[in-house]
């Protein structure tokens, strides 16, 4: 019989000592799951209440029960048949779409320029753009309003859209992403005879698709849910966006929460579509970014 050497004994000791570790790991995992579970509940509850309220009769709105006692789709019928909601929906779609496209184009153009070109004052321009991030919207609405008024843009699409056609955040985001595009790619394209605009469009833009997708989601959601500025710049009910229009459901005596929640539930559909479309690009972009040079 061969005597057991020291080393295997030491290994088995180590294994014995290691036994409590999985327990603590399990505990950690349970805590993590619990945190995620309650976090999830916290996120989902408002949406669940929104859908629940949209299925309630007015007299039941202030009951906290999640399941309506007498569910109805009457609110949906009312909102969809109400011509105003249709226009608010169209307005919101037009504004959010155009603003998103505009941001994707101009933010990336400026971001690319600030990232890939060397010119005097480049840093100052970048800092100036960044500094606008620190000014709250509430402070800007008065100058925006005065500008809109002087240009005759009040109560128009242009008036609602112009402050958000290009954003400092988008420029910053795109500049940071363009940093990851190797200069070799741009120089190779330059040697191959492309002009700077062609290089930006054919070489650089496809390589920052994840950033463009993220920016598209942010901008679309931001404009879809924007309330303060559209409320200030619009006068006629037909020019309202969904958030502004929904806030008007009801009167001084009572707020029609069931209708507001119904409108809100319907208005989440485009944002979900936008998210599902662009999420694909984010994942594909992450896969592509894994490619080594």
């Amino acid at each position: 019989m061969v005597a057991a050497p020291d080393v295997p004994r030491a290994s088995s000791d180590a294994l014995l000592n290691a036994q409590p570790a999985p327990k603590s790991r399990n505990m950690g995992q349970i805590i993590r799951w619990l945190v995620l579970f309650f976090g999830g509940i916290l996120m989902v509850m408002p949406i669940a209440y929104m859908i629940s309220t949209s299925l309630k009769w007015p007299h039941e709105v202030y009951n906290v029960n999640l399941i309506p006692e007498e569910p109805t789709i009457e609110n949906y019928t009312f909102v969809l048949e109400d011509g105003r909601f249709y226009w608010w929906f169209v307005n919101s779609i037009i504004i959010a779409t155009i603003t998103t496209i505009s941001n994707l184009l101009f933010d990336s153009l400026v971001g690319y320029t600030l990232c890939k070109f060397r010119f005097p004052g480049r840093t100052i321009v970048f800092i100036a753009i960044l500094s606008t991030l620190m000014i709250p919207t509430e402070m800007l609405v008065i100058p925006w309003y005065l500008m809109s008024q002087s240009f005759g843009w009040l109560d128009s699409y242009w008036g609602i859209m112009f402050p958000g056609m290009m954003t400092a955040f988008g420029t910053f985001l795109m500049k940071q992403f363009f940093e990851s595009v190797p200069d070799d790619f741009i120089e190779a394209a330059r040697i191959d005879g492309l002009n700077e605009l062609q290089i930006w469009w054919t070489v650089a833009m496809p390589l920052v698709k994840p950033a463009l997708a993220a920016l598209a989601i942010f901008v679309f959601l931001g404009n879809w849910t924007a309330f303060l500025w559209p409320l200030i710049v619009t006068n006629s009910v037909d020019m309202y966006t969904i958030p502004v229009g929904l806030s008007g459901f009801g009167d001084e005596a009572d707020v029609a929460w069931e209708l507001i929640m119904t409108g809100a539930a319907i208005s989440t559909i485009p944002t979900l579509v936008v998210f599902l479309i662009f999420q694909r690009f984010i994942i594909r972009g992450v896969v592509m970014a894994g490619l080594k040079g």
Partner: peptide
């Protein structure tokens, strides 16, 4: 180029 500069897309 050293890093080939071939476009991944």
């Amino acid at each position: 180029f050293q890093n080939y500069a071939i476009y991944p897309h």
